[in-house]
Amino acid sequence: MLEAMAIRYFREVTKSGSIKRAAAALHIAPSAISRQIQGLEQELAVKLFERGARGMSLTNAGHLLLRYAVESRKQLDDIRTLVQEFDSLQRGHIRLATVEGQLASFISDFVLDLSRQYPGVTVAVTAVGSRDVAEMVGRHEADLGLVFGRAPRRDLIELARMRQSLCVMVSPHHPMAHRKFCAVKDLAGLRCIVPDPTFGIRQEIDRACARARVAIDVYCETNSLAFARTVASRSDLATFLPQDAAAPELATKTLVAIPIRDKSLEATQVTLVQPATRTASLPVRRIAQLLAAQMKSRS
C-alpha cells in the first residue's frame, strides 16, 4: 500500500470522530489505531486531537495534517491512474532534450525508474543549453524538453514547472562553507568558475549581480556543469547551481550548497515543454504525464 498506515488511520478517525468508530469502519482493533495516532503525535511533537465527551476534534495542528492527508491521497490516486494507463504501453521511443543540470539527479533517476518498469520503452536524452532545447523541441527534433526558466518560444506548450533555486556551491574547505545562506551583495569579488553566458543559470546570476551593483571575479567559464562542479569541489573557486545539479557531490559532501537570499534566484525553475503544433503520440503523452507528476512532487 502506497499510503502510510498512520495517515490512513488518522484520516478515518477525523472522518468518524472517534477511534472506536474508525476501528469498526476499518475492521481492526481500536488499540491499533490508537498506537498509530500516538505515534504520529510523538513524531510531530504536537497534539492532533482534542478528546471530549462528544468525540475527537482536530486541533490546529491536526487540521494542517488533514490538509496534507487529503492532498497526498489525491496525488496517490492521480499517480495510480497514470500508472494503470501507462501499464498497457509495451513499447515506444521518446526523444528528450534537457539542460545539463537535470542529468545529475532528476533525469537520471527518472530514466532508471522507467527502464525498470517499462523496458520496452526506449529513451534518447540530449543535453544542451536552454535555447537549443527550445530549438530542438520547436523543430520536432525532440518530443519533450526541459528548459531553465520559462518557455522562450510561443510555439511551445508549458506542461509543468519545478522550482530550482540557485545556490553558491563551494568545497567544504572554502571560507564560505560554514554559512547557512548569503545575500547577493556577499558575492562581490567571489572567485568563481561559472557556466558560460548561454546558460540560463549564468544569465540569472548576471542579472542579480547587476541589480545589486556587485561583480563576481570570473576566473573560468565553461559549457560543462560537470566540469564546474569538479573544479569547485577541488579548489577555492565557487560556482552557482541548483541543488539537483550537484546532487552527487552534495551526497558525498565534496560540495556545500549555500542558498542565496534573493527573490529572483530563489524563484528560478525548470519547465517541461512540448511542441504546440504537433499532436503527441501515446508514449510521449504518458511519459510527459509521469515527468510532470515527478516535477510536481519535487517542487
Results as ranks from 00 to 15, higher is better:
residue 288 A to L: 07
residue 25 A to R: 14
residue 289 Q to V: 00
residue 131 R to Q: 15
residue 120 G to V: 04
residue 277 T to F: 12
residue 71 E to T: 08
residue 1 M to C: 07
residue 93 H to M: 09
residue 30 P to C: 07
residue 192 C to V: 07
residue 147 V to W: 00
residue 299 S to E: 11
residue 160 A to K: 10
residue 296 K to Q: 13
residue 83 V to L: 14
residue 264 S to T: 03
residue 257 A to G: 01
residue 69 A to V: 06
residue 167 C to M: 02
residue 120 G to Q: 07
residue 237 L to G: 01
residue 169 M to E: 02
residue 14 T to M: 02
residue 180 K to V: 14
residue 109 D to T: 10
residue 203 Q to A: 14
residue 261 R to K: 08
residue 293 A to C: 06
residue 184 V to F: 02
residue 272 L to P: 05
residue 198 T to P: 03
residue 74 K to F: 10
residue 281 S to C: 04
residue 47 K to T: 14
residue 136 M to Q: 15
residue 220 C to Y: 09
residue 132 D to N: 13
residue 30 P to G: 13
residue 180 K to D: 13
residue 8 R to N: 10
residue 36 Q to E: 15
residue 284 V to Q: 10
residue 80 R to I: 07
residue 13 V to K: 02
residue 134 A to Q: 04
residue 97 A to V: 08
residue 187 L to E: 05
residue 184 V to S: 06
residue 287 I to C: 01
residue 239 T to A: 00
residue 34 S to K: 04
residue 205 I to V: 15
residue 263 K to W: 03
residue 280 A to W: 03
residue 79 I to D: 12
residue 72 S to Y: 08
residue 80 R to P: 01
residue 268 T to K: 06
residue 204 E to T: 05
residue 89 L to D: 00
residue 206 D to H: 01
residue 79 I to M: 14
residue 139 R to H: 12
residue 49 F to R: 00
residue 287 I to E: 03
residue 61 A to C: 05
residue 287 I to F: 14
residue 270 V to Q: 00
residue 18 S to E: 07
residue 22 A to H: 05
residue 54 R to A: 07
residue 8 R to E: 10
residue 199 F to P: 01
residue 125 V to T: 11
residue 141 E to T: 10
residue 233 S to C: 03
residue 16 S to W: 05
residue 252 T to Q: 14
residue 79 I to Y: 09
residue 60 N to M: 11
residue 49 F to G: 06
residue 266 E to Q: 15
residue 136 M to T: 04
residue 299 S to D: 12
residue 155 D to K: 06
residue 20 K to S: 13
residue 20 K to D: 12
residue 23 A to Q: 04
residue 283 P to G: 09
residue 8 R to Y: 02
residue 169 M to R: 03
residue 121 V to W: 06
residue 80 R to D: 13
residue 35 R to G: 01
residue 286 R to W: 06
residue 244 D to C: 11
residue 111 V to P: 02
residue 87 D to E: 13
residue 7 I to D: 06
residue 79 I to C: 09
residue 141 E to S: 12
residue 72 S to H: 12
residue 12 E to W: 00
residue 177 A to T: 08
residue 255 L to K: 01
residue 38 Q to E: 14
residue 136 M to Y: 09
residue 58 L to N: 00
residue 173 H to S: 06
residue 161 R to L: 08
residue 233 S to D: 08
residue 213 R to P: 02
residue 202 R to K: 09
residue 297 S to V: 09
residue 178 H to I: 07
residue 107 I to T: 13
residue 22 A to C: 07
residue 285 R to K: 15
residue 225 L to Y: 03
residue 79 I to H: 08
residue 79 I to K: 12
residue 194 V to L: 04
residue 253 K to A: 14
residue 102 Q to P: 00
residue 167 C to N: 13
residue 288 A to N: 07
residue 40 L to N: 11
residue 299 S to L: 05
residue 96 L to N: 12
residue 40 L to C: 11
residue 271 T to F: 01
residue 128 V to I: 11
residue 81 T to M: 13
residue 83 V to I: 15
residue 238 A to V: 00
residue 246 A to H: 02
residue 121 V to D: 01
residue 92 G to W: 05
